[in-house]
């Protein structure tokens, strides 16, 4: 399967709303490889979702995302796992190994016990692998 990650300088981009670079990876059984890179326009949720869906990915892993922005992306049919932080390699490794735990890569202020009631917890229940 393919998943997409909003990135900046080798890490998950801090804010999806203004992210301009998406890495699409092909995830296999305990391995992953980069499939493509997309350049997207900031603050254009529908176009971002269209580009990612066109690449074949159905899940987008990203940093913070405003509720309105994330809702528009989801409205296009793309699953969003938001408020993640960390190196792209680590997150891709964790996804490839299966049982991806968003709490392990949660942004500050969005950890266990906080995310569920806060906006930053919305949509972070995905499981990879």
């Amino acid at each position: 399967m393919k998943i997409a990650l909003a990135v900046w300088e080798g890490r998950i981009a801090p804010l999806l709303d203004v992210a301009t670079e998406i890495v699409v990876i092909e995830v296999g059984d305990s391995y992953w490889s980069e499939a493509s890179r997309l350049v997207v326009e900031p603050d254009a949720p529908r176009r971002l979702a269209d580009s990612v869906l066109e690449s074949g990915a159905r899940v987008l892993l990203c940093g913070a995302a405003s509720l309105c922005f994330a809702d528009e992306v989801r409205g296009e049919g793309l699953q969003v796992v938001a408020f993640l932080a960390g190196a792209v390699d680590s997150i891709a490794d964790a996804w490839a190994q299966g049982g991806f735990d968003p709490d392990r890569f949660a942004m500050p202020g969005c950890g266990r016990g906080q995310g569920r009631r806060l906006g930053c917890g919305r949509g972070r229940a995905a499981r990879g692998g």
Binding site: P14, P108, L118
Partner: peptide, 23 residues
């Protein structure tokens, strides 16, 4: 909305998450 103890030691853009973070 980020507690200080979670912010200290983390990369600023991942705590601050502003439209000006990044390039």
């Amino acid at each position: 909305g980020v507690p200080r103890e979670e912010a200290i030691g983390r990369i600023c853009s991942e705590v601050f998450r502003s439209s000006m973070c990044g390039p």
